[in-house]
Simulated scan of single mutants.
Amino acid sequence: MDTTAILVTGAGLALAAFVVWYFFFSARPTVSAVTAVGGVQAVAITVKGGYSPNVIEVERGKPVQLSFYRAEENSCSEELLLPAFNIRRDLPAFKTTLVELPPQQAGTFDFTCGMGMLRGRLVVT
């Protein structure tokens, strides 16, 4: 191998290692819900190539209102699934969809798009 091949191979391996770290091991910010009037915990979530924020922390026993604003027309993001709460919602493009749920049990609950490619997590404490 000549020097150029070694440099290209090394750069490719470094890039592959960064991609693996970013998608599987990097820390994701957790957002705590804000308690609004009436004790409802509210969180605004933007849907655009993923969920932002994608990790949401709420308190058990208090009603939760998730506001999903879909800022794209990508077909993957047109449906929201919260299987633990038996919730399936269509998310119209460039509109806000409210999802209300009563988290009665502590735990971690995943939510996804209809295809399972976009992922988020609801952490109930």
Score class of each variant (00 low, 15 high):
V43A: 10
T112E: 10
A33R: 11
G114I: 12
P103N: 03
Q65H: 03
L13E: 00
R70K: 14
L101P: 01
T4H: 08
E73V: 12
P63M: 01
E59K: 01
R119K: 15
S77H: 10
M115Q: 14
N74I: 01
G50I: 12
V124L: 03
V19I: 08
G114N: 10
K62G: 04
L15I: 08
T97I: 03
I56C: 10
A42I: 03
A27E: 09
E73A: 08
G10C: 05
S52A: 13
V55M: 11
F111A: 05
G116C: 08
A11I: 06
Y51D: 10
A93N: 13
P92V: 07
V40M: 06
I6R: 13
E78G: 12
E79S: 14
F24W: 09
V43S: 08
N74E: 06
G114Y: 15
Q105T: 07
G12H: 06
K48V: 07
V37P: 02
V20K: 03
R119Q: 04
A42T: 02
T112V: 15
Y22L: 14
V124A: 02
V40W: 06
P29R: 15
V43R: 02
D2R: 14
E100S: 01
Y22N: 05
I45H: 07
A42P: 02
I87H: 04
F24G: 11
N86Y: 01
S67D: 09
N86M: 03
D90M: 06
D110C: 08
G49C: 11
R88N: 02
V58L: 07
A16P: 01
V55K: 08
A17T: 07
R89Y: 11
K95H: 15
L101V: 00
F25Q: 04
Y22K: 10
A33W: 09
S77G: 14
P102Y: 00
V123I: 12
Y69K: 12
E73D: 08
A106H: 01
I45L: 04
L82D: 06
S67Y: 02
T97C: 13
L122T: 00
A11C: 09
L13F: 02
G114A: 13
Y69H: 13
V8T: 10
L80E: 10
Y51A: 10
